[in-house]
Amino acid sequence: MGVRDDQKAATREKVLDAARDLFNEVGYDETTIRAIAERARVSVGSVFTTFASKAEVLSHVMDHRLTELYAEFDRVVPFLRGSTADRLCSIFAIHYEFETRRVKLFLAHVASSYNPNNDPGVTPYGRNPRLTQMLLDVLEEGVRKGEVRDDLDLRLIVDTLKAAYAWNYRMTAAAGGTVPAAEMSAVMDKQIAVIAEGWKPL
């Protein structure tokens, strides 16, 4: 890369770091592109040169964070034990523990996913291919082990699990971001138990 590319990459990192902190401190709606630029010590034009919109900035912030999370999963997932439901509970517990460190940021990500005017560069919540594949892998192994019926639409189960996971953040939103990860995980465990009743072999 040339000097210009290096500068562009450095600006991008500054913008993402500033936006991540602002989204988590004051929330998505209250954060402006101007505020992000000021925190990053770059011009507003530099932000728009790199990103098309605030929603795209948020999307890239989340992608950047998830790199760290899935590096952890690469180490942990091969060692998960127990039933299909147990393994799914562990995966979501790790997600809750990670996301509640910056809960306002994650709530902003979920909320922005329902915006019908999102730019093409935005990856909304629920379309994370790594999480989708991880859950599919667990369910497919459950089919092989005879724990999960082989006539079910596994992607529909994955969508249901992801919807339950996101729904549980309503408790945190209502409590101003103070609900512990363990409490949400306990609710998710019960939801997975209910869903598991539907995938049991007949």
Rank of each mutant, 00 (worst) to 15 (best):
E99N: 09
N115G: 00
L139G: 09
A186G: 15
A18N: 08
D189Y: 12
V76K: 13
D21T: 07
A18F: 10
F106M: 06
E147K: 12
V148Y: 12
F48Y: 12
V143R: 13
T84R: 11
R34H: 04
R4I: 13
E147N: 10
V26L: 04
T50C: 07
D137I: 03
E72K: 15
A40K: 12
K8P: 01
G45W: 09
F48K: 06
P201E: 09
Q133L: 03
A193C: 14
R149E: 08
A181W: 09
R87T: 02
K8H: 13
K200H: 09
V26H: 02
D86G: 10
K54G: 00
D151A: 00
D5L: 11
F79S: 15
G121V: 00
Q7A: 15
Y114R: 03
D150N: 13
A10P: 08
Y70H: 08
Q191S: 05
V47M: 02
F98R: 13
V143Q: 15
E13N: 14
R4F: 06
H109A: 05
D189F: 10
L69S: 10
D137K: 10
M1T: 02
I157E: 05
V44A: 08
H64W: 14
V61C: 11
E141T: 10
M184D: 12
D189Q: 15
S112N: 05
R155T: 13
R34V: 01
W199Q: 08
T100R: 05
I192M: 15
D189T: 15
K190T: 05
E99P: 00
P129Q: 11
S43R: 14
Y169L: 07
I195F: 08
P180C: 06
D86E: 12
F98H: 05
A173F: 11
P116Q: 00
K8I: 03
G121I: 00
D63R: 08
Q133Y: 07
T49I: 03
V194R: 07
V194E: 11
Y114L: 03
V148D: 11
Y114A: 00
I33S: 01
P180V: 06
N118H: 14
M134K: 06
P116T: 00
T32W: 06
R155N: 11
L135A: 13
A35E: 04
A173C: 07
V61Y: 03
G82C: 01
D119A: 07
V148L: 11
P78K: 11
V103S: 03
S43F: 04
A40Q: 13
L152Q: 02
R75G: 14
A9M: 07
G176A: 06
A52F: 02
